[in-house]
Design a binder for these strands. Sequence first.
DNA 1: AATTCGCGCAACCGCAATGAA
DNA 2: GTTCATTGCGGTTGCGCGAAT
Length: 286
Amino acid sequence: MIMSKSSVTAGSDFYEEDASEIRKGPWTLEEDNLLIQYVTCHGEGRWNSLAKCAGLKRTGKSCRLRWLNYLKPDIKRGNLTPHEQLLILELHSEWGNRWSKIAQHLPGRTDNEIKNYWRTRVQKQARQLKVDSNSKKFVEAIRMFWKPRLLEKMKQESSSPSSSSSSSSASIETQVFTAAPSPVLVEHPKPKNISLGNKEEHGDYFTAAGAYSEFDDEYYCYFADLPSQGMMAAAGMDSQDISLSECHAEGVDWFGINHHDLARSSSSSSTFWETDELWQFRKIGV
DNA sequence: AATTCGCGCAACCGCAATGAA
DNA sequence: GTTCATTGCGGTTGCGCGAAT
């Protein structure tokens, strides 16, 4: 049995209300066992009476939450897989903060867990980039940077013999691609037709094929080709090179961020892409 | 070694929706 | 149609732990 933080604090009276019989705070092992036993015998539901009948000095709400988020047998533990992360990003872009609805598409994951993931991982990155996590800017950044990396990671995992992909990964992948075709990260040489005219003050180049950054006299490709027309459509680009300012002019300020900071911080784990070990700058030949 | 800081996550809260009386 | 209890959901809080200083 998994020991929860709360379980090991058995006997703690944190939050415990002296005035009432209702206990609050971390659940003890004994309480967990009582709840498990009762639900196993009588099933879920009618949480208030369940709490009383099981001899738990908890509210029905508290029992329900404990069961659904922690004790239920089919709950999956551990880190979210790239498949699951990708699915969350996709579904959140469609439904917003409808956590329970999103959770329905991730078997074994709870709405609370998904909500926590969004707040601790995704929103953190938005804060670091100083953009609103619901802004178009950030949504585009996720689409351009994060999703391709997740797809790449999924590919790596599926080709690896020690792959731990769940049996549902195929269907998840199908759903993802059906929901919104995502860019695929590929190696990409620096375009020959980059001209000084496209160079921005930060030494960055934006092309239909990707974005390139000049940093310490090296070029880095930090997003890659789109097999589909999605990216260009999203940014209002045609097949010609386009500058950062032109991107801004289209109202898609993808990177209200300093690309050099991104590059520098690739070893400092202070940004979105690196924190999740999803992002690697690709050094390309000059 | 001691202290501080930041993160992850379990659990609480308030409100809305639903259903029974 | 109204009231009240219950359930479900999303937002928020705060504890425990490990990393950094």
